[in-house]
Design a protein around this nucleic acid. Sequence first.
DNA 1: ATCTAAAATTGGTATAGACAACTATACTTA
DNA 2: TAAGTATAGTTGTCTATACCAATTTTAGAT
Lengths: 240, 240
Amino acid sequence: MINKNSPIPLYYQLEEHIKELIEKGDLTPGDALPAEREYAEKYQISRMTVRQAFTHLVNEGYLHRLQGKGTFIAERKIEQPLQWVTSFTEDMKARGLEPGSQLIHFEIIPAASQIAEQLAIQENEPVYEIKRIRLADGVPMALETNYISANLIQGLTEQIVNQSLYAHIEEQLNFRIDRASQVIESAISSQVEAKYLKINKGAPVMLIQQNTYLQNGTPVEFVKSAYRADRYKFMIQMKR
Amino acid sequence: MINKNSPIPLYYQLEEHIKELIEKGDLTPGDALPAEREYAEKYQISRMTVRQAFTHLVNEGYLHRLQGKGTFIAERKIEQPLQWVTSFTEDMKARGLEPGSQLIHFEIIPAASQIAEQLAIQENEPVYEIKRIRLADGVPMALETNYISANLIQGLTEQIVNQSLYAHIEEQLNFRIDRASQVIESAISSQVEAKYLKINKGAPVMLIQQNTYLQNGTPVEFVKSAYRADRYKFMIQMKR
DNA sequence: ATCTAAAATTGGTATAGACAACTATACTTA
DNA sequence: TAAGTATAGTTGTCTATACCAATTTTAGAT
């Protein structure tokens, strides 16, 4: 399992070995790993070397340690989902709700100044404007408007939007979405929002603006959403 | 700079020291740090201990290493990791506003069921209830109520709270705050909130609940805040 | 002045051992 | 029975040392 004559560092060999055990299912979340000293003894390597491997796996989220108790396989479920929740669909699924969508309109318009700025394009360049009611278990949850540069993402259709916009951008166009930023604020619903969300005008809503970027920093999408405050809470986990 | 008699781990002291140098601007992106062996010599600690500090800062994105060349301050790209914005004070400073605080009350009360649940203690166990108006450039920004187990964090005083609660917990009590989760929702201000925030009853507010945990998973603090929607936006960056 | 080889410097890997902090369990004692 | 105590096992911190690998600097030869 561990080859001392290999040029591959021992700590790395051990890392790969443990990852394999996890992926094969020999170790499942919650299981305790053998103690550091046990590994050191078993493979005749130093405990510090074992620790180096463990530490790296902890940083990558595979393991977590409890002083005095042991080292355990991490629950991937709780830590992961909140990291990348830029898609309404995934967000709802993670909450155990059935996501739905109702297209209000889909057209190409000249970019207004605010939109152009967010997408880093010139004013009046063509952009897709896609407005949808987002449903959770069939009930209106949010009113969402996407803006996407028509020059950057070409050939978008209603059908693609109804399936998976992100998958199309990443797989068909071979772009890689890398990061997103969100600005969240609280407000009172407008007439339009109230109508689509089936709430009273003046009821509280949560406004979320999202910018999505490719790996090279190019803005790929700008989204404005209004969520029903009575049905939606935004959740985020931070770790240092 | 490095205190060998302190209960705070040496590597952690060094980490904080280096972070400070970066934040003060003594070290700027691209600068080379003194070599590991130099730090070890200077502070009379082992090189491995210096490496432990460096490694952690590399993982957090503060530094990057190049074998044979040195260790450098990382470029603060847009892709800086999820920021650790659990403190009102730091949040406001990052926004270029002057944070202030006005203590409304500070007392030890028996934990109500909701509070007990969040702090993972028994109902009616003693908890500190600390209610403050948070100011930004002198104007009310939020009404914040902290709940902290009095059995876990002992000897809290008004003075400590007015200075830095987190610093006290970490440095004096040698606890390590490790992660936090926040739940954000939109609502209409209550009578009490309106009064303290100097807004009209019924004006929109953003409610933020925060749980803070130690490294071993123990809940250390539960905070309920009501932010003025007309003055506060919540911002978050995500990267994958 | 230029090239080359050696030395110095830097981070990377690895060892062996010590003690501290924490947890769980078995045992003792009041 | 309940509470305290001893003990063994775990991860956490830290030291001192050694050698390897990549890079830069220096000294020397041409």
